[in-house]
């Protein structure tokens, strides 16, 4: 009985180590092909459009309503000790440092990570990835590298847009329903904002972009077992992206606060 229990723990540990090993090798291969020629510019631009441009509505909506809610909630809290003037500053810092990158990352993981895993997973089970190899085309270079690079570049851009939209949302709520003076709110927003607040959010976004696209590609690439396998790959890509975004967010915050 005890031995069975120990064996079960051992099996889980071995499976975990094997997965970590596979993912590490996959990551190394992917980044190697990002930096080594040939480069597929056409595919990269296509991914920039898909990951970046087409995610604008979902990121914009998320940021807008987050900014609006943030202004309301912070007003409720700060008014308890007469610190209403801090609303603008807390909204902008909260958004740029934390909420815009994390929420955009989670939204893009749902939209893009799932789509990448489903597309590459379908290519795997329909032998399209094998076909690439027989046509002397490296699938890491053709499928994985353009997506990861596009993810790492576009997510900071999306977050920058999200920062602006979110702050605008906070401004709208503050001036239209909380009675803030417009110029005073804007002054408070920018007076205490530092470049590192924005940059730390953009650095996080770039890492999240890498995580989302890497997870999508990895789970899609290793999918098997037909439609069910593709479905599983898609779920795993989204769930693992969510978890890794939240875990890495903590460690990135600790690193960037130093």
């Amino acid at each position: 009985m005890e031995w069975n229990f120990l064996a079960a723990i051992g099996r889980v540990a071995l499976r975990f180590m094997r997965s970590v090993g596979h993912l590490s090798l996959f990551t190394v291969q992917s980044f190697k092909h990002i930096v080594l020629p040939p480069f597929y510019l056409r595919l990269f631009l296509k991914q920039l459009m898909f990951i970046g441009y087409y995610s604008l509505p979902v990121v914009g909506m998320t940021a807008l309503f987050t900014g609006m809610v943030l202004a309301l909630q912070i007003y409720v809290g700060s008014s308890r000790f007469n610190a209403e003037s801090a609303v603008a500053t807390i909204v902008v810092i909260g958004l740029t440092r934390e909420l815009a990158p994390v929420l955009s990352g989670l939204m893009v993981a749902g939209r893009v990570g799932a789509a990448i895993a489903a597309e590459i997973g379908t290519m795997r089970v329909t032998e399209q990835i094998d076909a690439l190899v027989t046509l002397s085309t490296n699938p890491y270079k053709y499928l994985v590298a353009p997506r990861i690079l596009a993810g790492m570049i576009t997510l900071p851009m999306l977050v920058l847009v999200g920062d602006i939209v979110g702050v605008s949302g906070g401004y709208l709520v503050a001036t239209e329903s909380l009675g803030f003076n417009a110029s005073g709110y804007i002054k408070n927003t920018f007076d205490y904002l530092e470049a590192r607040d924005v940059i730390s959010g953009l650095v996080k976004a770039s890492v999240f972009g890498g995580i989302i696209t890497l997870m999508g590609c990895y789970h899609g690439f290793n999918s098997s077992g037909g439609a069910q396998g593709v479905g599983r790959a898609t779920t795993n890509a989204v769930v693992s992206s969510f978890i890794l975004i939240l875990i890495s967010d903590y460690f990135l915050t600790v690193m960037l606060l130093k």
Partner: peptide, 25 residues
């Protein structure tokens, strides 16, 4: 190589599927 179920690339039109090896390799 001709695959059992053709394994054509869904994301590309027919001519780009045929021309894939010529362009890429």
């Amino acid at each position: 190589m001709l695959f059992q179920y053709a394994a054509l690339f869904d994301s590309l039109p027919v001519w780009e599927n045929v021309a894939f090896g010529l362009i890429q390799a």
